[in-house]
Amino acid sequence: MSEIFHIKSYSHIKNQTVSVNGQTIYREESEDFSIFIKNAYKFLKTGYPKFFKMDNLSKLAFLAADVLLKDENLNEEENNIALIFSNKASSLDTDRKHQAAIENEAEYFPSPAVFVYTLPNICLGEISIKHRLYSENSFFIFDRFNAEHLQLYANNLLRRGKAEKVLCGWVDFDKNSYEAFLYLVENEGEIVHNTEEITRLYKTL
């Protein structure tokens, strides 16, 4: 197997904008994340009602992955695309909601529908269910986007034959500030998979 891998496509969701390979495909007037992401979902004809049950982090990660994976002609039964995601705030946005529901005795009302999203890797499960990914998935926490660790980890999975492709990146949601950057790594593609290129693409928008 080739030791040089390539970035086939990439997506950004930030500043009320969804873009694929550096081209804006949707822009929203509203600065409110819930309005923006719902309108983006509709505009992109995502057609996946489970989306509305997801928490903010999962909605962000799901849509950033969906705009790339829907162009991949995926198998309806199963696909071996690993997911290596990272962020800074883990699931703190939803953690704070669960904490608010248990803080005071008088208003003690924890909800399983909220609690299940108090793990950052739940968004990997959501993407795996939609795209039939019976594959490697890992969620890392870093202080800031860390191209080197993602690149090494993706290379290892591809070199060792643990995955056919790897979808990597950063999906962070914290106090209504949000940012997603995902990129798909495989054998074929125009952009060489190294830390310089990953960093360049991350900063493209």
């Binding site: 199963e78 499960g125 795996s128 019976y134 490697e136 643990k162």
Partner: peptide
Amino acid sequence: ATRNDANHIS
């Protein structure tokens, strides 16, 4: 190895 169930989140 790690593998996802691609089935249910909880």
